[in-house]
């Protein structure tokens, strides 16, 4: 298939590590966004959002270090020993991933400030979320043309995705609370706006990468994107069912509405994991059709 790089064990390891990095970044960014949007949520829900954001930020740093090792091993051609080869690591550090690592590292440290209650903690951690989102504008396909438009699109896409992904665990907790329906209902209202933004900027970015229908159906990038869009469509279906059926059922105290909603949110998590794997595949081993 056109535009597909060689795939070996290292490439697969790189894809899985990148997807894990995406997940960590989205949960870390999503924590402060959730706290800012739902400051009056129950204490246990807010505590969970804070805890997860910090854990995800720290895991994100570990994954970043792992990705440096994987990349050094790949370019060294030496196998596992290349992962700790100083010269190869210095080449990775000098590459766009090094620049991204500085922004992502600074962002992750600022996310830890989410543990400070009050405005300072929120503002610092929101800044951290912005830095992490911006770090993705310094690497890979975002470096194409038109550079600034791609950068704005990718940062917006990531923040909108983080608002959703970072809210999943707190919402899962809320669905078990007696009076959680109000929070879930409010999330549904805000998300209907942010998800629309997420989709519009995602489609715009994809169009700038593809440029034609033949690019969509004739290339590895196009087919991987189609897989991603299929899973995203399924996720949107789940989200619509939650908003239109399960949350109103929870509000009406219907039998097992909370349990069904929690199951549905867990399925959303599985769909998100698949989307992140498809995205990591897209950004690791395929060439955007406009570059072919």
């Amino acid at each position: 298939m056109e535009g597909l790089a060689p795939i070996d064990g290292w490439a697969l390891a790189a894809i899985i590590a990148k997807a894990a990095g995406y997940a960590a970044a989205l949960v870390a960014m999503g924590g402060p966004l959730f706290l800012a949007a739902f400051r009056s949520a129950p204490d246990d829900v807010l505590r969970l959002a804070r805890k997860l954001a910090v854990i995800a930020a720290l895991i994100g740093l570990a994954v970043l270090a792992l990705r440096f090792g994987i990349r050094a091993a790949r370019i060294s051609g030496m196998g596992p020993s290349g992962a700790i080869e100083a010269m190869m690591l210095s080449f990775v550090w000098d590459s766009p991933l090094g620049t991204a690592a500085i922004w992502r590292g600074a962002g992750a440290l600022l996310i830890v400030a989410v543990l400070i209650e009050g405005t300072i903690g929120i503002v610092a951690s929101l800044l951290g979320a912005l830095l992490i989102a911006m770090s993705y504008a310094f690497v890979g396909h975002s470096l194409g043309d038109p550079r600034w438009i791609l950068a704005v699109l990718v940062v917006t896409h990531l923040l909108a995705a983080a608002f959703w992904v970072g809210a999943l665990a707190p919402l899962h907790r809320s669905a078990a609370n007696k009076d959680g329906a109000a929070l879930l209902h409010r999330f549904g209202i805000i998300a209907s706006g942010t998800v629309a933004v997420l989709v519009v900027v995602g489609v715009s970015f994809a169009w700038l990468m593809i440029g034609s229908f033949s690019g969509l159906f004739g290339t590895a990038y196009g087919w991987t994107l189609i897989v991603k869009i299929c899973v995203v469509t399924g996720l949107l279906g789940l989200a619509a069912k939650n908003k239109l059926q399960l949350v109103p059922a929870l509000a009406a105290n219907k039998d097992d509405a909370g349990g069904r909603l929690r199951r549905s949110i867990r399925m959303e998590v599985v769909a998100v994991a698949l989307i992140l794997l498809a995205t990591a595949t897209l950004t690791s081993i395929t060439t955007p059709p406009v570059n072919l």
């Binding site: 535009g3 597909l4 790089a5 060689p6 897989v227 595949t281 060439t287």
Partner: peptide, 24 residues
Amino acid sequence: MKQIILALVATLAIAPAALAHSKA
């Protein structure tokens, strides 16, 4: 869900033909 996983695996398993991120 199984179909989605199969599609992903199929995408990953297709033999490489060209170089990514650089014209041949």
